[in-house]
Design a protein around this nucleic acid. Structure first.
Lengths: 238, 238
DNA sequence: CGTGTCATTTTGTGATCACAAAACCTGAAC
DNA sequence: GTTCAGGTTTTGTGATCACAAAATGACACG
C-alpha cells in the first residue's frame, strides 16, 4: 500500500485487498475492480445515489481514485451523472432494455464465433465446471453467485478471442443490464432461470460456429427476453 | 469562467470558449468537448503521448478536469493508458481495424433504421446541406473539415433515434478509428473519397429502411474498407 | 398535521501539493 | 561513435483544501 498521505498516516488500512502494492495506478485498479464487480453482481441498487466520499471511505482510500473510476464507469454508461453531479446506477426503462437486448444479440454471437478457433479442450473443462456450479447456485437461490458465474462463463468464451474492440463494447453492455437483472432475480427468484450453456459447450467441442451462435443468441433471449420484458411492462420503474 | 484558484488568479484566460460559466462540471464538459473534437478531426497523432499538464496548459485549466476526461476517454477506448501511465492515441492494427469495421457494420445500419421514423423533412434538408458541404471539402482537400462534417452527417441521423445504448457504442467506435483515418487521408489525400450519402438521403425521403441500411453499410465499406485495408497491409505501423 | 423557511451538513468540483517512477539529457569511459 | 552511468526534469498518482451548489434537518407558522 503506497503510504503517501502528507498529513496523516494510513490508519486502519481499509478493506481493499492488500495485493500488489507497487505499480502505477494500483489503487485505481483495485477501486475499479471493486466497483465493477459490485455492479456485475448487483450490489448497487439502481436509482440509489453513489457518493464519492462514501465509496472512498468503504474502500479505505482517498476520494481521488474513486472520482476517476466513477468518471470512467460513467463513460461506459454503467453509471449516470445527473445534472446536479450526483452519480447513480441508471434505472432501467423499456426502451433501454430493448436496446441492450438488440446490441447483445448483434455483438455477442459474433464475438463468440471469433473466439471459437482459440478455445481449447481445457477451456471446455473450465466452462463445464462453471456451468455445473451455475446450476447448483440456481437451485440454491444464490442470485449474486449466479450473476458472477454467468458473467465468468460468457466472458471466458469472449476473452479467448483476444478482441480489443468488440469485447469492451460487450463489457459496457453487461455493466448496463446487470444491476437491473439483479433486482429482477430478487423478485422472481432464480428457480425459473434457464440457459443454453450446455448447448454452447457442445458447439465448442464440435467447433460448430453456427451452433455456437445459436446457443449464445438463445441464451441471451432466455436470460433477458423472458424475464425482463414482463417486469418492465407491469411497472414503470424497474 | 469559475475563478477558483486558491493561490493564483486566472491569468491569461486560456483558449477555452468562455461559454456558460456556471453549472456543475462546466469545465470538465468543455475539456471533454475540446479533446473529443480533436480526436474526431484528427488533431491528435496515434502513438504520440498526450500529457495531462500539457493539455491543461493549452486549455488554460488545472490538470484536474483533464485527468478525469482522459480517464473517461480511455474507458471508451479512444485513448490508451500504457503500463507506465502515459496515455496516447492507440495506433491502429490490422486486427483492430477489422473489428471496428465489423462492429460498425453490425450497429450503424441498425441504429439508422431505428432513427428513420423520427427523421423529418427538415432533417433531410440539413443532411443535404451537410452533404453538399462535404463534397466541396473533398475536392478542396480539407481533410479536417471533411472528417468533422462526415461525423456530423452520420450522427445527425443516429441522434434522431434518441438511443441511449447503441449511440454511445457507435460513438466509441468513431473515436477509435477517426485518428487513424486522418493519417490515411494525410497520405492519399481526399480526392479518392466516395460515399453513399445521397443514397442515404434518398432512402430517408422514401422512408425505405432496407435502402437506408444498404446505404449506411455501403458508406461504411466505401469509407473504411477501401482505403484502410491497403494502408495497413503495406506497413506494420499505421 | 402539513408547509414553507432558514441554518447545517453533505457532496461534487477545481486547484494545489508531495512523492515516486519514468523519461530525458549529459558526459565520461571505452 | 557507442554505451552506460549519473543527475535533472517531466509526468502520473494519491491526497488534501476551498468553495459553491445541493441535500438535509430543524423549526416556526398556518
Amino acid at each position: 500500500m503506497p503510504g503517501r498521505q502528507p498529513g496523516l498516516t494510513n490508519e486502519s488500512a481499509g478493506h481493499l485487498a492488500e495485493a500488489a502494492p507497487s505499480s502505477r495506478g494500483a489503487t485505481r485498479s483495485q477501486v475499479d475492480a471493486a466497483i465493477r464487480s459490485g455492479l456485475l453482481t448487483g450490489r448497487f441498487i439502481p436509482g440509489k445515489a453513489v457518493t464519492i466520499r462514501g465509496l472512498a471511505g468503504e474502500l479505505g482510500v482517498s476520494p481521488m481514485p474513486v472520482r476517476e473510476v466513477l468518471q470512467r464507469l460513467s463513460a461506459e454508461n454503467a453509471l449516470e451523472v445527473k445534472r446536479n453531479g450526483r452519480v447513480q446506477v441508471p434505472d432501467m426503462t423499456r426502451d433501454r432494455f430493448e436496446e441492450v437486448l438488440t446490441a447483445r444479440l448483434l455483438l455477442e454471437p459474433e464475438l463468440a464465433e471469433r473466439a471459437l478457433p482459440h478455445l481449447t479442450l481445457q477451456d471446455v473443462k473450465t466452462l463445464t465446471a462453471l456451468d455445473d456450479d451455475i446450476d447448483q447456485r440456481i437451485v440454491g437461490g444464490d442470485a449474486e453467485a449466479y450473476m458472477r458465474l454467468n458473467h465468468a462463463f460468457h466472458f471466458h468464451i469472449y476473452r479467448a478471442s483476444a478482441s480489443k474492440v468488440l469485447l469492451p463494447l460487450i463489457d459496457s453492455l453487461w455493466l448496463q443490464f446487470a444491476p437491473f437483472m439483479r433486482t429482477v432475480y430478487g423478485r422472481v427468484g432464480t428457480a425459473s432461470l434457464v440457459d443454453q450453456h450446455k448447448e454452447a459447450i457442445r458447439a465448442i467441442e464440435l467447433k460448430d460456429s453456427a451452433a455456437l451462435r445459436a446457443a449464445i443468441s438463445g441464451d441471451i433471449a432466455d436470460g433477458m427476453g423472458l424475464l425482463g420484458k414482463e417486469i418492465l411492462e407491469s411497472a414503470t420503474a424497474g
